[in-house]
Computed example of a mutant assay.
Amino acid sequence: MMKERGMEVVMPCVPEIVAFDDDKLGEAFANLESSMKMDLNQIAISEEHIHRHRLEIALTFLSIYCSDNGPLFHGLRLKIDSLHHEIRTTMSSFKQASATLDTLNKLEEKEKLVDEKYSQQMEAAINLVSEISNTKKGMAELKEEILQAQLNSKEKEFKGYEVKFSSLEQQKEEQVSDTMGLMEEYEVVKKDKSRVVEGQTKARREVEKVKNDWPSCVANLRKTTLLLAILLKRKL
């Protein structure tokens, strides 16, 4: 019996119409009924694609069953095969579009991380330049004192500044190299993101399209399985 829910007409479950002596046939209908209660995302991205495999195995079994049971079922076999092809196409389109959007999200996260590291690197570079400037100033002042006072202790202190200055210069070179590397990485990420963004709009439209088409596909599948169940009931 069909029930009305607002403007929606809900078809009965196949087990409410006919009981199957064939366990495999019953299992196929049960798997179809379970799949029709899921949304597209649940089936397409399930762990190890288990729900998708169950749906395809059920459709394949019913197609073979119809083919083996005389002309009365041949029309339904063609309809089941057509729906099977439509479901495969829908799953493939949804998976590709979802993968494109996932790649874009990952690139955006990577871009954010590189940008944060670049900001930190620039801040460290500014501090280093400031420290180098102060060190050079201290060296100049100390050298002037050495020249004026000819103090050996000041010369020793000046050598300490020279060692420190050499170390800071080395740090500066390393930071410049690291900063250039980050800038190159940032440009690579920007280029990769630019390429993916070009397909972003198409991918989103594709996801919306297959999501919108999925209820119609499920409705056709439900009608087909209901008709098959009715024919089976007559046969049984």
Rank of each mutant, 00 (worst) to 15 (best):
D21R: 15
E47T: 10
N41H: 15
C66W: 00
D21F: 05
Q42N: 06
L32E: 05
D68G: 09
L32K: 05
R52K: 10
H51R: 09
F20E: 07
A58I: 01
K37N: 15
E27K: 07
I43K: 00
F20H: 03
N41S: 15
S63V: 05
F20Q: 05
Y65D: 13
I45F: 13
L55Y: 06
L62V: 05
R54T: 01
S46H: 01
F61A: 09
F61D: 10
S67E: 09
I50A: 13
L59M: 14
H53T: 13
S34P: 02
A58Y: 01
E48D: 08
C66H: 03
D21H: 14
G26M: 01
D23G: 10
L32N: 02
D21Q: 14
A30M: 02
M36R: 09
D39H: 11
E48P: 10
D39V: 12
I43A: 04
D39N: 15
S35N: 05
L55C: 02
A19Y: 06
D21E: 13
L25F: 02
A19I: 08
A30W: 07
L25T: 05
E27S: 03
L59R: 10
Q42K: 13
N41F: 11
S46R: 05
G26E: 10
D39F: 01
S35A: 15
A28H: 09
E47F: 13
Y65G: 01
F29L: 08
L62H: 03
N31Y: 07
I45W: 06
T60D: 10
I43T: 06
S63F: 06
N41A: 14
L62S: 02
E33S: 11
I57L: 13
A30V: 03
L59H: 07
S67K: 03
A19Q: 12
I57A: 13
R54K: 14
F20W: 09
E56V: 12
E27M: 08
